[in-house]
Amino acid sequence: MNSRSSGSIDGACEVAGTPIKNNIRRLRFDHDEMTQQQLADKVGVTRQTIVAIEQGKYSPSLELAFRIARVFNAPLEAVFYLENPSDLNTPGGKS
């Protein structure tokens, strides 16, 4: 999973090459405008890694994804989600 991102108005980001998007930016805003550094400290990574995840330049490990979701007290699907769930029907991703 990698590469460039395309941001959107609601703060969701798509990781190019994968259909995975995330709501971290919006969730931070909803949690007393938590800073990237604060989130990074809570999950044990550098601020640059949070920036990269938000920008869709890095797809976190499952463990880190769960840690982030736990900080927001939200299920994993509320933080990371598939833009087009029907892609899962095709082995290896998009057809």
Binding site: G44, T46, Y58
Partner: peptide
């Protein structure tokens, strides 16, 4: 400088 090396690094 960041004082940790995380999974991305």
């Amino acid at each position: 400088e960041p004082d940790i090396t995380d999974e991305r690094d």
